[in-house]
Design a protein around this nucleic acid. Structure first.
Lengths: 200, 200
DNA sequence: GTCTATACTCTGATAGAC
DNA sequence: GTCTATCAGAGTATAGAC
């Protein structure tokens, strides 16, 4: 794989592979998705697909990256958007695409080694979520809307961990309402008032 | 695999396999542990080991079950033990055995299908944790020690999900202090007072 | 550069000999 | 109860066609 994606056609093909793979997993579920299955869906041989990606794990990582990009377009912040509500919207949307949730959860569990293709992705995602939550929380504290009981750093870690853990639980027991649980915790912490919170 | 474990020797051998496998993963880490590697450690062929277990996933599930049994022996409740503190002790102990944490986290992510050998294990574990937390919390509420702000059902789900999610995060970033984060949340919720909480 | 065909390696798993 | 032999399937590396 030399000069991957240097040509217009190559770039387009790479995007097409990602879009197709994302769509297949979102529609059909994860079910041990293999390179073979995904390459069939695009009309290429497995090696043909791996011409654009270093490995299966890198392909899967890029699928998740694309998912995040699409979500960011769909759920973008307006000037008056409550960012916690936006976060809850994404969580609610997740319940519609169990295949992607499983892909995310599995890769998350496998990416602990720094050498894993998804390690950087999850590190960046963690940093982003952390900055986001800390920012919202610090601002709310300054405005006197949020309580001083919890520091922003911990809140960032806790919400990130909770979101990940709820997805693992929900995959095993879909009766769990991920967004509602997060909402209840935020309410208990005094971050949501009952008026501002809207149930799904 | 007929009549697995019906004979005394068979039962002993099965236990020996589990004990050795547990010890190897605890000491060496997970590193993509294979049946081959574990069977070598016991001095058997892969097929020899799979005589005692239906599959690799069943073997791994039983390793986790044995881990829980050993933990229950080590961290057992005395009459005056704070069960939340006991929970935190187990979490702190987890940080000493990353290999087992990774085995747990990976299997947890793979066990979503009801047909998976670990599905029942995690369902039972979830139910146990849930009953435990709800019980502690209800009791504390009745005694007036805990606030009414959060219902027991949600607290059970949230703490279980948080524990799982923190392990995933910690595997990727070991600077995270899992027990301390849970402690901070419990403190913010008014469940821990500062006097009763003891930092690790 | 793009892609197929082929082959290699490693896995977990199974059948049957001992 | 445990082995050897074997299998099916995975991911991946290479050679070379176009």
């Amino acid at each position: 794989m030399v000069q991957r994606g240097s040509y217009a056609k190559g770039i387009a093909k790479r995007e097409e592979i990602l879009a197709t793979a994302l769509e297949v997993i979102a529609r059909e579920g994860y079910r041990g998705a293999s390179v073979k299955e995904l390459s069939d869906a695009v009309g290429l041989s497995p090696a043909g697909v791996l011409h654009y990606f270093d490995s299966k794990d890198e392909l899967f990582t890029e699928i998740l990256r694309k998912r995040d990009d699409l979500d960011a377009e769909t759920f973008h912040a307006e000037s008056d958007t409550d960012l916690f509500q936006l976060f809850l919207q994404v969580i609610r949307h997740n319940a519609e695409v169990p295949g992607l949730v499983e892909l995310y959860t599995r890769l998350n569990a496998e990416a602990s080694s720094p050498g894993h293709p998804a390690h950087r992705f999850f590190a960046e995602r963690r940093a982003y979520m952390h900055t986001l939550f800390s920012g919202i929380f610090e601002e709310g504290k300054r405005a006197g809307r949020y309580p001083e009981s919890l520091d922003s750093y911990s809140l960032g870690i806790i919400l990130t961990a909770l979101a990940d853990g709820l997805q693992t639980l929900w995959l095993q027991d879909p009766t769990i309402d991920m967004a509602a649980e997060i909402e209840r915790l935020l309410t208990s912490l005094g971050i949501f008032s009952h008026e501002r919170s809207t149930s799904a």
